[in-house]
Write a protein that binds this DNA or RNA. Structure first.
Lengths: 268, 268
DNA sequence: CGATATGTTGAGACCCGTCAATTAGGGTGG
DNA sequence: CCACCCTAATTGACGGGTCTCAACATATCG
């Protein structure tokens, strides 16, 4: 798995996964410097083309990279959800972040020999991967690829800033509402956002993600359901009363979240 | 402020700030892929040389970049502490992260027109800065510079992972102990870590950093002081009983934190 | 049709927040 | 050097949000 494609000439943008839209559409990355979009788009095209030969899939619950294990691959998530999980010596568990299709993960692999948290599949997952040394070669020869990965970490970082704010200052209801709105927008980056989306997390996962207990998550979800703000079953979540959820999440959201909320909405 | 130094030839590594040590020493960046260190070191040298002409200082409490304000500079922190602060509409405040001398901040500026949080000086601060377009030029022409900034975001991200874990799963005592150990190591990257260090944060700052209230921070600090684990006054913090603090913080630390704790220790 | 994981609900305890008052510290002008 | 001011630190009483423990219900799966 050490194919070194060199730095291909600017290719015609190849077909990416199913419903992905061009970055240039603007809907995918609001508030970013527009002059960089073509570079990012091309970087992604070249990089994913280099990754394409190396696919790997995982079953729900499966560990992709174990905690503390030396690893050397950059992953591109094609389908499914992936969690970055940190377990404390006394069994407390924190889901630090969740990756959705289209994300690159394991970018830090380039610098770090190993990391203190695991990467686990929340659902059936399909990925493409590339040895970090190949990534380094690509990055050194093609600034656009460097830029695309760089942008990925910046995006992750921005999300972490929101998480720190939510965990530090939000109550349970606010954290849950903000999480729902975040996933709602992210599950479909094509611009059309549905009231209903697949949420492949148990309430235990949600608790570990939000820094709460299962019991309390369940109570708050029940409260929201009794208020007819949401419904859910079998891994599907429906936001029935979007304004209500937005009102709850409002205080711990930032300008980007709120502008994302204005995306078109389509029926179930 | 749009000087474009181009991509200088590999310079002899210029003198960096006072007590900084070479990255190659190993003490500064444990657990990183060693083969990258020379590149990072050279990237930093070239980048900071390009920034040197543009210095700017700030007084304690002063806003460096206001929330939502379009900004265009990459900053290098020479002396002092800087906080990234997010204020919610109802006055709740979260300090997302703290930058210490040697850090670059505002790296995301390259991609984002504006950001939802402010950058504020916690103490007297001196910085050097560079227009993001100049940074882009440098990055495109010199992979080492790209790598150095990339590494900075990765380091920030790693820190944010710890913050999410601490805020999500740590109690007040654990958060405070982990914070003290983190700052203790970071204030002096030269490898020799003192029991006493300057901590230019009020208890209100600490509360905003840890997602607590001033009152509760004060109570926990008092408890630690009564237990003769720490002492503090006038912006100086002394860890009297390091093993006790380490024991408290242990559950929410990761392997990197714990290995950092093994650094040499010198007297006050 | 059991077996196991996941979801649901109640009772009580505890950590931390809120409100409010007081003390200490650092700076300034007289 | 003292009076004054303003911020930061400190302490108490009380309430509430979340956790713990425990039981039960429901869903999922071979």
């Amino acid at each position: 798995m050490n194919n070194r494609p060199g730095a291909p000439e600017k290719p015609a943008v190849p077909e990416t996964s199913g419903s992905r839209v061009s970055w240039s559409e603007g809907s995918r990355f609001p508030l970013h410097r527009p002059e960089l979009l073509p570079h990012l788009e091309r970087g992604e095209a070249v990089l994913t083309q280099a990754m394409a030969p190396n696919a790997k899939t995982f079953k729900p619950g499966e560990t992709i990279v174990a905690e503390g294990e030396p690893h050397r691959y950059l992953y591109w998530l094609r389908t499914g959800w992936v969690a970055r999980v940190r377990r404390m010596p006394d069994q407390r568990t924190q889901i630090i972040t969740v990756f959705l299709p289209g994300d690159f993960f394991g970018v830090k692999t380039i610098f770090l020999l190993r990391q203190p948290d695991a990467l686990e599949a929340l659902s059936s997952v399909s990925t493409e991967l590339l040895d970090y040394r190949d990534v380094l070669d690509l990055v050194r020869n093609d600034p656009d690829i460097s830029m695309r990965l760089w942008w990925q970490i910046c995006e992750d970082q921005h999300r972490l800033h929101r998480r720190v704010t939510g965990l530090g200052r939000g109550n349970a209801e606010e954290r849950i509402a903000a999480m729902l709105l975040d996933f709602r927008v992210r599950v479909d980056r094509a611009g059309l956002v549905s009231k209903t989306f697949r949420l492949p997390m148990t309430q235990q996962h949600i608790a570990n993600y939000l820094g709460l207990t299962v019991v309390h998550v369940n109570r708050v979800l029940k409260r929201l359901r009794d208020a007819e703000a949401i419904t859910f079953s079998k891994g599907r979540m429906t936001i029935q009363d979007l304004p209500a959820i937005q009102k709850i999440a409002y205080p711990i959201q930032d300008a980007l979240d709120r502008s994302a909320a204005e995306l078109d909405e389509v029926g179930t």
